[in-house]
């Protein structure tokens, strides 16, 4: 407990609490996992920068005691790219929601993956636009209801990690708010990985998503999340049919490739020599 208290003191802006999130929201769990992961990764506090977009989860930046940059909708990765290129020694965590990252910010997401720039993208996926009151996002599962899909959305959802991998990301992991310790470990591994790391964190939104889709309250949503998830290790020995409707958690891929900011600065030093 002492460690947690110390982290609260150091890494949280306690004066800015209570937060704005609704009761039952998973953003606090994900934010806490992020804070512990930063501690585990053993980064110097002054080197850590939190960048975020627009949406509920992006408000986390305001509660974290680092240099924090709350940007415009969808553009967090583009701001982060500029900062990382200017100051490659900084450790950047980019918090985005599912709509922020995969809809309006989709272009920056795939290009950050393609460049393999050393940013840690933490995507809090609650399957909905929460801040604006429950519109469907590219990560809303097909058939689920939203204010802008009152009969259930006909659109198919992205598999964010497949998208990231296809675009060139070199680290991809998925965790769930119902298993915060695992999530913390996944973010830590992503943070230590050199290259573009994508950590998708599934998080309940009982107010704007659960209620409309009759998924129960926060407790039921977290329980269902846990019940339907399966680790990547276990999943590897299972049949495809068994994995239908399952959420695979853990590190889905991790590989080495040249990292963009380092390569760039190496290349200009060579030119100067």
């Amino acid at each position: 407990m002492a460690v947690i208290e110390q982290l609260t003191q150091d890494f949280l802006r306690t004066k800015k609490l209570p937060h704005i999130w609704c009761p039952g929201c998973g953003n606090g769990i994900v934010t806490a996992a992020l804070v512990r992961a930063i501690e585990r990764a053993d980064f110097d506090q002054k080197d850590v920068v939190i960048v975020s977009g627009i949406g509920c989860s992006s408000r986390a930046a305001g509660y974290l005691n680092f240099n924090t940059l709350h940007t415009t909708h969808g553009r967090a990765l583009a701001f982060a790219t500029g900062l990382k290129m200017a100051r490659p020694e900084l450790k950047l965590f980019v918090i985005m929601g599912d709509g922020d990252c995969s809809a309006i910010g989709g272009n920056h997401f795939i290009h950050s993956a393609r460049r393999n720039i050393d940013l840690n993208a933490v995507i809090v996926n609650n399957h909905i636009y929460g801040m604006t009151g429950g519109q469907h996002s590219p990560l809303t599962p097909a058939g689920k209801k939203a204010t802008t899909a009152p009969r259930g959305t006909l659109e198919r959802e992205f598999d964010l990690l497949k998208l990231a991998r296809g675009a060139g990301a070199t680290f991809g992991a998925r965790g769930i708010a119902a298993q915060p310790r695992q999530l913390e470990q996944l973010i830590t591994r992503g943070a230590k990985h050199k290259g573009f790391s994508v950590i998708e964190a599934l998080s309940p939104c009982p107010i704007a998503y659960g209620r409309r889709n009759k998924l129960g309250g926060a407790v039921e949503m977290l329980r269902d999340m846990k019940d339907s998830s399966i680790s990547v290790e276990k999943a590897s020995s299972m049949e495809a049919a068994e994995l239908e409707d399952k959420t695979i958690t853990g590190v889905l891929f991790s590989e080495e490739a040249p990292e963009f900011s380092e390569e760039y600065h190496k290349s200009i030093t060579k030119e100067n020599a």
Partner: peptide, 29 residues
């Protein structure tokens, strides 16, 4: 820019170009 140790980056779109410039400026460049 490479000759003076600077950074040039062609971004994926105009919006990203503006965003990256702001990000770099916050970094002190």
């Amino acid at each position: 820019l490479p000759d003076v140790g600077g950074v040039f980056i062609q971004m994926e779109d105009e919006i990203a170009g503006m965003a990256a410039v702001i990000g770099a400026s916050i970094g002190g460049m």
